[in-house]
């Protein structure tokens, strides 16, 4: 069955149709969330949120973009919201720890996140890249993740981000420059 028909069925409350959509896009959503959040538990939560949102807003889906683009857009927005929330929470926990030094609430970043889909010999490099990606501004990070990790064509990235293809190209260009300058700091000093 076509994705659009499935969305129409979901709009009428069909959970079977939602299961089918999950079958097609579940892994895509989970992997995108994993690239943003670098934490399996958080990625699982985002996947749940995304499919709940699909179920709730299927009625409002007008079909102007493809179902895949729509689901990607929901995922990206949920991930960015979550990152903002985690940042706020971390800041609050830090302030709280000044008054209560024995608090264990400070959130630690998943600095040593190992993506399960990467080969062992590239794992060390990938860890550094994920660490550097975290430092990019949200739009550049989104463009980079969708283009180079999710391997979407530029046109689709532009649709997901609701920008022009040129704007996406420019974001990618800046992302690469910023990544290179961030990597400068992580370069291991081999003279020692």
């Amino acid at each position: 069955m076509e994705n659009l028909q499935l969305i129409q069925k979901i709009a009428h409350g069909s959970e079977a149709a939602l299961r089918e959509v999950y079958g097609v896009f579940g892994n895509i959503v989970f992997n995108t969330a994993l690239s943003y959040l670098r934490d399996r538990a958080e990625a699982e939560e985002i996947t749940q949120d995304v499919f709940l949102e699909v179920y709730q807003s299927a009625k409002t889906f007008e079909g102007k973009s493809s179902v895949r683009t729509w689901i990607y857009r929901i995922t990206v927005n949920k991930c960015l919201d979550k990152l903002r929330y985690l940042k706020r929470k971390k800041r609050f926990a830090l302030v709280k720890s000044l008054f209560k030094p024995d608090t264990t609430e400070i959130q630690h970043d998943a600095e040593d996140f190992e993506h399960p889909g990467i080969t062992l010999e590239r794992q060390e490099y990938a860890k550094i890249l994920f660490k550097a990606l975290k430092r990019l501004p949200p739009q550049q990070r989104t463009a980079y993740i969708l283009s180079f990790i999710e391997e979407l064509p530029r046109k689709e990235v532009a649709e997901v981000m609701q920008l022009s293809v040129k704007a996406v190209e420019s974001l990618l260009q800046r992302a690469k420059i910023n990544l290179r300058s961030t990597l400068e700091k992580y370069y291991p000093d081999r003279r020692i």
């Binding site: 989970f30 889909g117 490099y125 990938a126 990597l183």
Partner: peptide
């Protein structure tokens, strides 16, 4: 480092997530 994510395989979502 920049090419380390090339040919990355997708991870399976946990089985009981749905």
């Amino acid at each position: 480092v920049l090419s380390s994510l090339e040919d990355m395989k997708r991870t399976e979502a946990p089985p009981f997530l749905f």
